[in-house]
């Protein structure tokens, strides 16, 4: 449990750092450990990345290991793949996760499939980091949450950290992983602070975590929606409704044990995600629960709450209302526990 670690860590040096700083620390620590690890992407050097995640890294590691690329997403992903197959551990930043679509052939047909197509003869240890999600007023082509796309590609791992602590620990594991990992960062979380230990730690991929214990309803959620669900939980707790919030943290491969266990415990499940509802990963989680022994413990149908099935709009009021709002989540929980 990260909360336990954080509490333990409090005595031995925990500071509050931002999500972006946590990611930068993870990359820098791994780059200090191994010359095979390097960062490349658009404007990751002197500029420090579009969201400032890699600010200062070029000063420590130089332009050879913090590589500014042309605006060429296909070859950014493909070159990472080629470097990975030949023994490096590249981290490629795609400036907005929407732009991964431009490198989709290299990600889906190359990086993800190479190992299988070659009968297990190749490893592809690479990380594609990309900011996902809406809320910045950047409209439809800079705001998508497309994690379900990548979960549908065997060979890829998909990570969606919701806190600075998780971001750092999971990214270090992603860099060490021998497979291609799509690491989806939340642009609205970049400046959010949280406790992170001074000492080194990692969080294994495929380790779902109960972020908050409760007995009334299980809410499975990830990314930016975790904090929102925790806020709702604090409010409803005053009414005596105790939500259990489970964050898968890694969507693929999914650690479904804690999700199923929670569903058995509460008998009621709501799945909340920022991605559009239709075809979203919430459907997969609902199916996993329905397929498990938790089915026999359910007191109500499994509910999903994703974004409306529209591209992300520009106007701030429209944008705020396209994703699950505080009010919608609250209403959905109330309806489930009635």
């Amino acid at each position: 449990m990260s909360s336990a670690k954080q509490k333990d860590g409090a005595a031995t040096g925990v500071r509050e750092i931002t999500y972006a700083e946590a990611i930068r620390e993870a990359m820098s620590e791994e780059m200090r450990k191994s010359d095979d690890v390097f960062l490349m992407g658009e404007d990751v050097g002197v500029y420090g990345g579009a969201f400032g995640v890699s600010v200062g890294m070029v000063d420590e590691f130089g332009e050879d290991r913090v590589r500014d690329t042309p605006i060429s997403e296909a070859v950014i992903v493909g070159a990472a793949t080629g470097a990975a197959v030949t023994g490096m551990r590249p981290i490629a930043e795609i400036q907005f996760s929407d732009f991964i679509t431009i490198g989709m052939d290299q990600l889906v047909n190359q990086a993800a499939k190479i190992r299988y197509m070659f009968g297990g003869a190749a490893n592809v240890p690479m990380v594609i980091r990309a900011p996902a999600g809406s809320g910045t007023g950047a409209a439809a082509q800079h705001s998508s949450s497309m994690e379900a796309w990548y979960t549908h590609v065997p060979g890829l791992k998909v990570v969606t950290p919701s806190s600075p602590y998780d971001a750092k620990g999971l990214l270090k594991s992603a860099i060490a992983d021998p497979n291609p990992v799509v690491f989806l960062e939340q642009k609205l979380l970049y400046r959010v602070k949280g406790p992170v230990p001074e000492e080194e730690y990692t969080i294994p991929l495929s380790s779902s975590e109960v972020k908050r214990e409760g007995d009334a309803v299980t809410v499975v959620t990830w990314g930016r929606m975790v904090n929102r669900c925790l806020e709702v939980a604090d409010e409803l707790s005053r009414e005596g409704i105790e939500m259990e919030v489970v964050d898968p943290r890694t969507l693929m491969p999914l650690d479904e044990g804690p999700i199923v266990a929670s569903a058995k415990k509460t008998g009621r499940v709501l799945i909340v995600h920022e991605a559009v509802q239709t075809g979203g990963y919430g459907g997969e989680i609902a199916a996993r629960i329905a397929d498990s022994e938790a089915f026999y413990y359910l007191d109500a149908p499994i509910k999903r709450l994703g974004a409306l099935d529209v591209p992300v709009p520009y106007n701030p009021v429209l944008e705020a209302n396209v994703v699950p709002t505080h009010e919608k989540i609250t209403a959905a929980v109330r309806e489930l526990v009635q």
């Binding site: 296909a74 070859v75 070159a79 080629g82 470097a83 197959v85 290299q106 190359q110």
Partner: peptide
Amino acid sequence: LSRGNLGANGIVGGGIPIAVGAALTLKM
């Protein structure tokens, strides 16, 4: 891979970015 053959490829042009990445390894 033991003989430096990074693979045939079913996608037209699909291997070219991989070659560039492999060359990046050599250079680094």
